[in-house]
Design a protein around this nucleic acid. Structure first.
Length: 732
DNA sequence: TTCAGAAGGATTTTT
DNA sequence: TCCTTCTGAA
């Protein structure tokens, strides 16, 4: 694009933000106001106007996916010859920096990146070493405490000084040992990636300057979700030119639990003197009704600067509220509506929820109704066992000091190295002050272990020794070879179960991903980095007709139709969010959900919801956020019972849909109250249709107290008793 | 050492 | 409900 055509596509405020290219700038932007678009255009503007060169720009996004999207938008707008600016997340940027300079901090450049699972297994080892009991201070607690200490940039000593935790002394020891363990393993955890980069910048001014000079313009998206180390990274990077542009919306700050500090955005002017502030308050996404509803909810928060979004899309459809008896019914209702939408030509619908486990019923029902969908998150590809195993092998090749990976694969597939052998190996490492791999080699060389143990360990050592050269091979070759050589594939083949089949397919998939890296000539290191930093949200496919995801993952996205499920006390807001600050964050989460929608929002909640299989004893209360939406904006859809009652025509053929035994019970109760025990309409001999089993005939109807038991014969399927099962029955 | 079965425990959100 | 951990037997 030439001349500046792109400027014509912007409103006055956006254009100001794009063309203001000197000094710190804060863009306070509302939902749907074209935040990301504005900084994307700003990047284009900087290059197209020759203000700086592509390589002098660093744009930071919140997720890899967002980065990828921004890159491709920039690419479309720029003349094809230009090189692309660096668009990355804080984490991947940090990895980039550390891969070049980690040696200054005493790490090698081939360091490993430890995820939360790795963290957990490290902590487990440390607990054993220190003879700590999980019952005393749960590992989970240590893990999260260490994490939040790191988010505040506290080292163990600072933690010890500042923490008021009753268990601080104990966690202090764990934290100290943990840090040493990481160093000895030549690894960083996620938090370290940021922290150590900041440390590098502050301890070595010449390194900081290298980057601060190279990037003359720094742009940061989703600034409201930056934590302390991220803020400090930004400050270091802007320390020479002060050309920092931050975009954010305090109402969409939803990562407090991860150390995100809403104050970073609230005190931007103090942090970056001379900052200019632009507000973007026009919303281009949603109808006025949706905005009003969202605005009404979030206005109950006290900690905000406050802004009023407006749109020229006046009115719009009312929000719709469905009250379901249980989660299955909620999903069924939503799925029926989705089917209608899809039939009517809608192609992008989102189901959003607070917690991942809520996706289950939706998946079940969508599959039953044969509606294609895409799930973002939950058990992601990269957290599957076989994938982690395969990556652990590669990681071990890359960094032999990595004990986490070594312990993960030493007996995977089983090769006769059991707990006892592993414990003795660890012992030997500790007493001889060697790392695990060295200890293994040492023990083998000095014949330290008895015959069978020795042989098993030797077998493993041989595999890894011979595989060492693979490191230099194309990634997919290395991966395939190690899977073969380790016997992993053979073991799966031998197993010959459906599950093993699945695992092999997943591994194939991983090889396909690796082939990409080989094709681009990227080294193993790059492959490992991006798999380590892979996020659930990276799986989002904008072309899927129906997408299921958490509210957190929905940040930055938009959909014509949004279903916001589980609007109950205990779910949204979550039962663990009790403090005032927590509640405000939950409210922002609700706000984020509502403002994803362009045309229509469907709200729903369940009167009962099962947690871990058991029935919840009490009835759920509707979310307090629902009552914060003005009644005039919401239309309540009749519940299942009401729908049933109203569709029943006098005489003639009536079609009655029972969504669950629950609603049948409700129906019976009513009937009893009204007419004294009149029956449900299920009669012996009646023909019946069941959504799953098809046509059948009722053999027996029993009513015991509140329970209704129906015995139905389905031709070819035998006799089924329907009691408290979620029978989908229709009389025909 | 490994496997199978039983028991117990847990669950927010994520780079 | 599902997943991890524990226990005992082969």
């Amino acid at each position: 694009m030439s001349g500046g055509d792109y400027l014509n596509e912007l409103n006055d405020q956006q254009r100001f933000a794009v063309t203001h290219t000197e000094g710190p700038l804060l863009i306070l932007a509302g939902a749907g106001s074209g935040k990301t678009r504005t900084i994307t255009y700003k990047v284009v503007h900087l290059i197209a106007q020759g203000i700086c060169r592509s390589e002098n720009i660093l744009a930071v996004t919140f997720t890899n996916k967002a980065a990828e999207e921004m890159r491709s938008r920039i690419e479309r707008l720029l003349p094809p010859v230009e090189s692309l600016p660096l668009v990355s997340t804080f984490h991947s940027f940090a990895v980039r920096v550390l891969r070049r300079h980690a040696d200054r901090l005493g790490w090698r450049r081939d360091f490993s990146i430890f995820d939360e699972d790795d963290q957990k297994s490290i902590l487990k080892r440390i607990y054993e070493e220190l003879h700590l009991d999980d019952a005393e201070v749960p590992i989970r607690k240590s893990q999260s405490t260490i994490g939040s200490a790191k988010n505040k940039a506290w080292d163990p000593d600072q933690y010890m000084q500042k923490s008021e935790d009753f268990d601080a002394a104990l966690i202090y020891r764990v934290y100290q040992r943990y840090e040493r363990y990481l160093k000895e393993s030549n690894g960083f955890d996620f938090d370290d990636l940021l922290l150590k980069t900041v440390e590098l910048f502050s301890r070595f001014p010449e390194v900081r300057e290298l980057y601060a000079r190279r990037f003359t313009h720094v742009l940061i998206d989703e600034y409201q979700d930056t934590n302390l180390p991220q803020f400090e990274m930004a400050r270091h990077l802007a320390s020479i030119h002060h050309n920092i542009t931050a975009v954010g919306d305090e109402d969409q700050s939803i990562y407090r639990f991860r150390g995100a500090d809403i104050n970073n955005i609230l005190r931007f002017e103090r942090d970056f003197p001379g900052a200019v502030i632009v507000k973007l308050e026009q919303n281009y996404r949603s109808t006025q009704n949706i905005l009003d509803a969202a605005g009404a909810v979030v206005s109950n928060n006290l900690k905000r600067k406050g802004k009023v979004l407006w749109t020229d899309k006046v009115g719009g459809e009312a929000l719709e509220l469905f009250i379901a008896n249980d989660a299955t019914e909620e999903a069924e209702y939503a799925t029926r509506r989705m089917r209608e939408y899809l039939a009517g030509g809608e192609s992008r619908i989102a189901v959003l929820y607070r917690t991942n486990f809520q996706s289950r019923q939706f998946e079940e029902v969508l599959r039953r109704f044969q509606v294609p969908y895409r799930l973002v998150g939950s058990v992601s590809f990269y957290s599957r066992k076989e994938i982690k195993d395969a990556l652990a092998y590669l990681r071990l090749l890359n960094n032999p000091d990595d004990p986490v990976s070594l312990l993960r694969v030493i007996n995977e597939p089983p090769r006769g190295i059991g707990r006892t052998s592993v414990d003795r190996l660890i012992d030997h490492a500790r007493t001889s002050k060697l790392n695990l791999w060295q200890a293994l080699e040492d023990a083998l060389a000095s014949q330290l272990f008895p015959g069978r143990m020795h042989l098993a360990l030797e077998r493993f050592a041989k595999i890894m020794r011979e595989a060492a050269a693979l490191k230099e091979f194309p990634v997919h070759v290395a991966l395939e070879s190690i899977l073969e050589a380790s016997g992993y594939i053979a073991a799966l083949k031998e197993e010959a179960t459906e599950e093993a089949e699945d695992r092999m397919l997943n591994l194939r998939e991983l090889v396909t991903v690796a082939e990409e890296y080989s094709r681009r000539g990227q080294p193993l290191q790059d492959f490992l980095d991006s798999t380590a930093l892979h996020a659930d949200s990276d799986d989002y496919d904008p072309n899927a007709p129906v997408t299921l995801m958490t509210l957190h993952n929905a940040k930055g996205l938009e959909f014509p139709i949004v279903f916001l499920a589980g609007c109950e006390e205990g779910v949204l807001p979550h039962s663990r969010s009790t403090s005032q600050d927590d509640l405000e964050e939950e409210r922002r989460l609700c706000y984020v959900g509502l403002t994803r929608a362009e045309k229509k929002v469907h709200l729903s909640y369940c009167r009962r919801r099962r947690f871990y299989g058991g029935d919840s004893e009490e009835m759920n209360k509707p979310s307090r956020f629902l009552s914060e939406i003005p009644a005039r904006l919401v239309e309540q859809v009749p519940s299942a019972f009401q729908q049933f009652a109203s569709r029943r025509s006098p005489g003639g053929l009536s079609i009655q849909t029972y969504n669950s035994v629950e609603s049948i019970r409700g129906f019976l109760d009513r009937k009893k109250d009204q007419k004294g025990g009149s029956k449900s309409g299920f009669k012996t001999g009646a023909a019946i249709y069941h959504e799953q089993f098809g046509r059948g005939r009722i053999l027996e109807v029993q009513e015991a107290g509140d329970d209704l038991k129906i015995t139905v014969q389905f031709p070819g399927l035998g006799i089924k008793k329907m009691l408290q099962s979620y029978a989908k029955l229709r009389l025909i």
